[in-house]
Simulated scan of single mutants.
Amino acid sequence: MTARNTLIAYTFMLPFLILLVVYHTWPVIFGTYLAFTKYNIISPPQWVGLANFRELFADGQFWSGLRNSLKYILVVPVIQIIAILVALLVNRPLKGIGFFRTAYYVPVVTSFAVVGLIWNWMYQQGGPVTAVLGFLGLPQNGSFLNNPATALYAVMFVTLWKGIGYYMVLYLAGLQGISPELEEAATIDGATRTQVFWNITLPGLRPTILVCSLMSTISAIKVFEEIYVMTQGGPAGSTYSALFYTYSRAFVDFQYGLAAAAGIIIAVISILFGLINFKLTRGGKVDA
């Protein structure tokens, strides 16, 4: 009976498993193989061993892109802190709170092509951002996206603005999963709001923090869409990311082996930062 039920279960799962193998498992295996070959899609792959990795390590453009991708991780703690604060704000039973929850989430469902065009206009000389800076008496050095010193941080701010709503929803779900009796008991015992937050709310959010920080860190390391839409890696390579390097090698230079090798390095770095996230959040375990 158990074997029959197992067979039925796997029969229902079969269509999904086939799609998983075709569109995920096989590309990973084939991409790993390509990392050790010279391949330009026209000629068959030629095994070259570690030659692609040696070329990457000697390529200053790859290291520049990798540095920018690692610098992009600065977005992660900022976006998580703001998302938690916004989730705490919209978790209150206030009048019209549904409108604010929706308003914070609107950027998430907006296409990045649209978001990129809007922020390109806002950042340009004479746009709203420079106008506000001028009104406040702050210095203006032309468009933020045309200045190598500010371009990457300008793109990072757009990522921050667009992603807050997404993580807010996840943290809101986490907050609503924390027993209100615990907070009420702590308040009755004389704990302040700050003490309740640090000793009950934040530990209760630890599993959500782990999930959100993992997703945010991996997205930061693999940043591409924002760069492609807003700057194309410029100016002067100041926003050139590791994944943009992979894209350029594969779809501009048709060096698929080199691109696959870069992809493996990015994946390994993502795994390492994932392990760091597990360590910092204690594996997402809630204190007993």
Results as ranks from 00 to 15, higher is better:
residue 145 L to N: 07
residue 249 R to T: 12
residue 131 A to G: 11
residue 50 L to H: 05
residue 87 A to W: 02
residue 123 Y to P: 14
residue 171 Y to S: 10
residue 211 V to K: 08
residue 150 T to P: 11
residue 134 G to Y: 05
residue 162 K to N: 09
residue 202 L to E: 00
residue 247 Y to H: 12
residue 82 I to D: 00
residue 12 F to Y: 03
residue 281 T to D: 05
residue 270 S to C: 14
residue 127 G to Q: 09
residue 196 V to F: 02
residue 81 I to G: 12
residue 285 K to G: 07
residue 219 S to I: 04
residue 187 T to V: 08
residue 188 I to S: 06
residue 204 G to M: 03
residue 159 T to W: 05
residue 210 L to S: 08
residue 204 G to D: 00
residue 21 V to G: 09
residue 4 R to M: 13
residue 54 R to N: 14
residue 173 A to T: 12
residue 100 F to G: 06
residue 149 A to S: 13
residue 253 D to S: 15
residue 169 V to T: 08
residue 141 N to Q: 13
residue 138 L to Y: 01
residue 243 L to G: 00
residue 160 L to I: 14
residue 12 F to K: 11
residue 263 G to E: 00
residue 282 R to P: 02
residue 202 L to I: 08
residue 234 G to Y: 00
residue 223 V to N: 10
residue 97 I to L: 09
residue 199 N to I: 01
residue 143 S to K: 12
residue 7 L to C: 08
residue 31 G to R: 13
residue 139 P to E: 01
residue 178 I to D: 01
residue 38 K to Y: 06
residue 84 I to N: 10
residue 10 Y to D: 02
residue 202 L to M: 15
residue 288 A to F: 01
residue 66 L to A: 12
residue 256 Y to M: 15
residue 63 W to V: 09
residue 204 G to K: 04
residue 192 T to Y: 00
residue 84 I to V: 15
residue 198 W to F: 14
residue 138 L to H: 01
residue 80 Q to H: 02
residue 253 D to L: 14
residue 99 F to Q: 03
residue 136 L to S: 07
residue 26 W to D: 02
residue 163 G to E: 05
residue 180 P to F: 00
residue 253 D to V: 09
residue 53 F to G: 12
residue 243 L to S: 13
residue 224 F to C: 13
residue 252 V to F: 06
residue 270 S to N: 03
residue 248 S to M: 12
residue 18 I to R: 06
residue 66 L to W: 02
residue 154 A to I: 13
residue 222 K to W: 03
residue 288 A to D: 01
residue 282 R to L: 12
residue 59 D to M: 11
residue 140 Q to D: 03
residue 191 A to I: 10
residue 33 Y to E: 03
residue 170 L to E: 00
residue 53 F to K: 13
residue 211 V to Q: 06
residue 171 Y to E: 07
residue 126 G to Y: 00
residue 90 V to C: 04
residue 286 V to N: 14
residue 82 I to Q: 05
residue 16 F to Q: 06
residue 92 R to D: 00
residue 33 Y to C: 02
residue 118 I to M: 15
residue 275 L to S: 03
residue 179 S to V: 09
residue 180 P to S: 09
residue 99 F to G: 07
residue 252 V to A: 05
residue 287 D to H: 04
residue 72 Y to W: 10
residue 37 T to S: 14
residue 220 A to R: 05
residue 67 R to K: 14
residue 147 N to I: 10
residue 129 V to E: 00
residue 195 Q to M: 08
residue 169 V to P: 06
residue 134 G to R: 12
residue 231 T to F: 03
residue 190 G to F: 08
residue 6 T to H: 05
residue 62 F to W: 10
residue 17 L to G: 07
residue 238 S to K: 07
residue 45 P to Q: 12
residue 282 R to A: 14
residue 122 M to H: 04
residue 18 I to N: 05
residue 33 Y to H: 04
residue 286 V to F: 00
residue 227 I to A: 12
residue 178 I to H: 08
residue 276 I to G: 13
residue 172 L to G: 09
residue 275 L to I: 15
residue 28 V to P: 02
residue 184 E to Y: 01
residue 170 L to P: 13
residue 32 T to C: 14
residue 260 A to I: 03
residue 287 D to N: 10
